[in-house]
Simulated scan of single mutants.
Amino acid sequence: MSMDPKILAFDVFGTVVDWHGSIAAEAKRLSLPVDPNEFAAAWRNGYKPAMAKVRSGTLPWTKIDDLHRMILDDILKTFNITSLSESQIHELNLVWHRLNPWLDTVEGLTKLKSKFTIVTLSNGNLGLLADMAKNAGLPWDLILSAEVFRHYKPDPETYLGVAEIFNVLPEQVMLVAAHKDDLLSANACGLQTAFIERPLEFGPNFSRQDLHREEFTTYHAKDLMDLAAQLNCK
């Protein structure tokens, strides 16, 4: 096994918080005339294509809050939802600031924080991540975002930027994520990696087929409590 990392950098959406369940619950709360699971999936499905426009230069640098709003405007048309006022749409877009943590998240992060410096490495913007941490009680040592680096993951500038901020080697940083493409990119930059199984990330109707162990992951854990145990956090 590799040396212990010094910095644990966490993907957030899906790894630390339950975006699908939170958004489906918001759709129900607002009595939107849609299948809540389909609505949550459609909103998230617009995420990578929107970021790709920024990464390719088709769009200038654009915060995730603004990309989320662009996607939301599109899916409201797709689902033919016309009952919301502008202020209601604005408030709905901020649901990403209020996502609920997984049940193991806060205790797991607290254990990991006792031994390591824990930071976010999310494509979410700084204001969003700060609001989310406040709402969900996430005990970050530092909130880092693609916004800091003006690059979205999986651009190498994001992963290597964490090492640069803390003045450590890339292999002294470990990316913790529930997404193998993210981990593969971090691994290519020399970071250690930890895969967290999140079988319900995409909702109750989606069966994940990618929860097996991979050679490019340094650790493979059921959840954050399991990772803390593997890293000998008391």
Score class of each variant (00 low, 15 high):
216 F>Q: 09
170 P>S: 11
202 F>T: 09
147 E>C: 04
160 L>F: 09
118 I>A: 03
140 W>D: 01
164 E>H: 15
196 I>L: 00
212 H>N: 11
126 L>W: 08
127 G>M: 10
147 E>S: 06
153 K>T: 09
138 L>W: 07
139 P>R: 01
194 A>T: 09
151 H>V: 03
147 E>F: 05
153 K>L: 06
127 G>K: 12
206 F>L: 11
185 S>L: 07
153 K>V: 06
146 A>N: 03
190 G>L: 11
203 G>I: 07
128 L>G: 00
134 K>H: 13
163 A>Y: 13
140 W>A: 01
204 P>T: 14
151 H>E: 11
165 I>H: 15
190 G>F: 06
218 T>Q: 07
203 G>H: 06
162 V>F: 03
151 H>R: 15
164 E>Q: 15
159 Y>G: 08
162 V>W: 03
141 D>M: 03
117 T>N: 12
152 Y>G: 00
149 F>T: 04
140 W>L: 02
218 T>S: 15
215 E>L: 14
146 A>D: 01
195 F>H: 06
142 L>P: 03
139 P>C: 03
212 H>K: 08
149 F>W: 12
144 L>V: 13
133 A>I: 03
164 E>L: 06
150 R>Y: 07
193 T>I: 11
196 I>W: 02
145 S>M: 04
121 L>P: 11
145 S>I: 06
175 L>A: 10
118 I>V: 11
206 F>T: 15
216 F>R: 04
201 E>D: 12
142 L>N: 10
196 I>E: 03
207 S>D: 13
131 D>E: 14
214 E>F: 04
130 A>S: 13
191 L>I: 13
166 F>R: 10
203 G>C: 02
130 A>M: 11
166 F>H: 12
219 Y>E: 11
178 A>T: 01
130 A>Y: 08
177 A>H: 09
121 L>G: 10
213 R>I: 04
129 L>T: 08
189 C>G: 05
132 M>E: 02
123 N>I: 07
190 G>Q: 08
136 A>H: 02
206 F>M: 14
168 V>Q: 09
128 L>W: 02
147 E>H: 09
216 F>K: 09
140 W>Y: 07
211 L>H: 04
214 E>Q: 14
133 A>Q: 00
127 G>C: 06
125 N>H: 05
170 P>A: 14
177 A>T: 09
134 K>V: 07
138 L>Q: 01
198 R>C: 04
198 R>I: 05
193 T>G: 08
178 A>H: 06
205 N>H: 13
148 V>D: 15
204 P>H: 06
204 P>S: 09
120 T>M: 02
117 T>P: 06
161 G>T: 09
125 N>Y: 02
143 I>D: 00
192 Q>Y: 12
142 L>E: 10
150 R>C: 03
119 V>D: 02
169 L>H: 15
145 S>R: 02
146 A>Q: 02
122 S>Q: 00
152 Y>S: 05
187 N>C: 14
220 H>Q: 05
193 T>D: 10
210 D>R: 04
192 Q>A: 05
152 Y>R: 01
172 Q>C: 11
171 E>Y: 15
170 P>L: 12
196 I>H: 00
158 T>Y: 05
178 A>D: 10
178 A>R: 03
158 T>P: 03
161 G>Q: 04
124 G>Y: 08
120 T>Y: 01
196 I>D: 01
165 I>W: 13
218 T>W: 05
146 A>P: 01
198 R>L: 00
174 M>E: 12
205 N>R: 13
